[in-house]
Design a protein around this nucleic acid. Structure first.
Length: 135
DNA sequence: GCCAACGTTGGC
DNA sequence: GCCAACGTTGGC
């Protein structure tokens, strides 16, 4: 079981929209590191859902329901999509500013490599985010 | 295979 | 709107 963090600009796809949809597909990733992370995801893995640009906080958790397949938005076979279902909303969002203040979380890939849209998260980091999120 | 130039992302 | 960080491209 692995843990991940997926970023979305609320402008493009928000947590609110995800709450309505109950499931979604993650496509359009055009970065090899992010692609490799998508490819490593297994059914049942959990992913923190982060709002970038606006919000700047982790708002909920998504669950992998379908492992990688050809990204339908391109013919290039290098790119993948993954399906997620709604898992849980955090009781309260965990802000980037708080993550940066936390001894354990300040080394998250999210902070260190801010441009990466699909990040790996350790078990310890995942648990701590849930704790800060009131879970 | 190196490296400069350029483009993109995302926090501030 | 600016800028730092990083990825990609293309000339050599």
């Amino acid at each position: 079981m692995n843990y991940w963090l997926i970023k979305s600009e609320p402008f493009k796809y928000s947590w609110d929209q995800f709450l309505k949809d109950k499931s979604t597909f993650w496509d359009g990733v055009r970065n090899y590191t992010a692609r490799n992370n998508l490819r490593a995801m297994k059914k049942g893995d959990l992913a923190l859902f982060y709002h970038s640009n606006e919000g700047l906080c982790i708002v909920g958790i998504a669950k992998v329901i379908k492992e990688h397949y050809q990204d339908p938005t391109t013919d290039e076979t290098a790119w993948l999509a993954v399906d997620f279902s709604l898992y849980k909303s955090l009781k309260k969002p965990v802000f980037l500013a708080d993550i940066k203040k936390d001894e354990l979380l300040k080394n998250m890939q999210l902070v260190k490599q801010s441009r990466l849209s699909v990040c790996a998260v350790t078990r310890e980091e995942f648990d701590k985010v849930l704790l800060l999120g009131g879970m």
